[in-house]
Nucleic acid binder design. Structure first.
Lengths: 151, 151
DNA sequence: CTAATTTCAGTCAAACTGACATAC
DNA sequence: CGTATGTCAGTTCGACTGAAATTA
């Protein structure tokens, strides 16, 4: 129920980059989930709304390519967003396989709200680091991400 | 099935530390899972065996405190490890609530094997970074982890 | 025919919750 | 009594798989 008050891990584990990454990611996930959950959203909702807002109306397949979210999850997440009238699904007249997904005004409002939450969470997450250190971390992680994910 | 060949994320998302962390952690998890999965293990197995090897025979509750794994997951993971004779569960004579968990010789052999796998994976994970950068990353993540996780 | 798009029905690992029986 | 321990059954989120139907 509550945080146990002891060692995070054995020596052979706690120095491992992969462990440090997954653990700090778990912290980040706790913070993000907490923040978004407090306003009835979760990570995929934010990521999809942000992707959609940036790309303009698109197909679900394109949404998948631009968000890094799997197509099957796109379908499910869009169902949830559409139910709240944050996005609109309409058939594409020029290609009848496709749906055109559009973010609604309510969706844009929600997105702006979620963005505020997310920004606050970043600050909580990075609290112990100076500005230079934060930038350093972002640069290092970006390099790792650029390298993998083209695999 | 295969990697989509496009943008990882929209601008408002791809600079977020929380997103970078969870995505690099996902890469790390893919690599670790792949490596461990190839020898029939997963993260909890390695972490528990390592914790156990370091602490010597202990109770499950202590194991939970020292590994950062939830008690309920400890139970399930120990069931799996015991089934493969990598650990032994025996009742504690001085406190009959407790089980004393001991790593077996086979468990130690397995642990040594898993360690090799894990070390290789670290190198794959950090490939694009210099040694100094790797140390930097480890320091920054450790600071974050020390800060959070104390509640 | 092949290829792209959407949908559905799953799996999986990790983290976590709540309840319960037992023993200290 | 309250607290610690072990067990079980369950959820959540994110990532992922496989298959099917439709249309280009």
């Amino acid at each position: 129920m509550e945080t146990p008050s002891t060692d995070p891990a054995p020596v052979r584990v706690r120095g491992l980059p992969s462990w440090l990454l997954t653990q700090t990611a778990a912290s980040a996930h706790r913070l993000v989930s907490g923040g978004l959950g407090a306003v009835g959203a979760r990570g995929y909702h934010f990521r999809l709304l942000a992707t959609l807002d940036e790309s303009g109306p698109t197909s679900q397949a394109a949404l998948g390519r631009h968000s890094g979210i799997h197509l099957s999850d796109i379908v499910a997440t869009l169902n949830e967003l559409a139910e709240q009238d944050l996005v609109e699904r309409s058939p594409d007249p020029v290609d009848r396989r496709r749906n055109v997904i559009t973010i609604t005004p309510a969706g844009k409002r929600k997105l702006r709200h979620l963005e505020k939450v997310i920004v606050q969470v970043q600050d909580e997450l990075l609290e112990p680091l100076s500005n230079e250190e934060r930038e350093q971390l972002v640069r290092l992680l970006t390099r790792l991400l650029d390298h993998h994910g083209r695999g």
